[in-house]
Computed example of a mutant assay.
Amino acid sequence: MLVELVKVSKFPWSSWLAQVQMPFGGAVVRWCGDQAAKPGKYHVEWTVDEDIVWGRNAKPAVGVGPGVRPGGHCVVLRGRLDLTVDGAAVLDLDGSQILLDLADSLPGGIAGTWVELFIEREKIALYPYEL
């Protein structure tokens, strides 16, 4: 996914964090690239390092379409949720696929719907790559 990197910073109690913007929103998340990265456009891969628990950090979406926004102590990712053949889940975030680990099986009828994930910002990581 192509994101606009606004800035990379670090606080004593945190990992390196990046403020990023996309056409459908923005947030501050963990940055796993060059700590001296300059503002600009970067292709990134998203990862979520938290088990998904329906009703706790995953809920039906308010609205449709991809979205990324701050949500207090967490980041809210809105995308279409699908299941893989081996029982894992994938969040489609505007064409980018984010593999998710499920703590339990999802309720029936959830696959293929718009959902919102509420994930602590340091448990979402961006890995920049070059094409």
Rank of each mutant, 00 (worst) to 15 (best):
C32G: 05
C32R: 14
L106W: 03
L117H: 06
V85M: 03
V20A: 09
F11N: 03
K123V: 03
V115E: 07
D51A: 08
D51T: 05
N57F: 15
L91Y: 13
D86V: 04
Q35E: 15
R30S: 14
G67P: 09
R69V: 15
A89G: 07
A89W: 06
Q19W: 13
V48Q: 03
Q21M: 06
G95D: 08
D104K: 05
A18P: 02
R121W: 01
E116Y: 10
D104L: 04
G63D: 14
G112Y: 14
K10P: 01
L91P: 06
E120H: 09
A37Q: 10
F11W: 04
A103T: 00
E4G: 00
R80D: 01
D92T: 09
C32K: 14
P66I: 00
G65E: 04
C74W: 08
S14G: 01
V6P: 02
D49N: 14
S96T: 14
W16A: 05
E130K: 06
V85G: 00
G33P: 13
E50R: 12
D94Y: 04
S105T: 11
K59V: 12
F24N: 02
F24M: 09
F11I: 00
D94A: 15
Y42F: 14
F118M: 06
I110S: 00
L77D: 08
M22H: 08
I98V: 15
G63A: 14
I98D: 07
G109I: 02
W13V: 02
L100M: 05
L102S: 04
R78C: 15
I52R: 05
V20E: 04
M1L: 14
P60V: 14
R30P: 01
L81I: 12
V6R: 15
L77F: 09
L131S: 03
E120S: 02
A37V: 10
G25R: 11
Y42H: 12
L131P: 15
E45R: 15
E122F: 08
L83S: 10
D51M: 08
G65N: 07
R69S: 10
P12G: 10
C32Y: 01
R121M: 10
Q19F: 01
V75F: 07
D51E: 14
D94C: 12
W13M: 09
R30K: 11
K7M: 03
V8N: 01
Y42I: 01
V48I: 13
I124N: 01
Q35H: 13
L5K: 08
V62D: 12
H43G: 00
L106V: 11
I119H: 09
L17K: 11
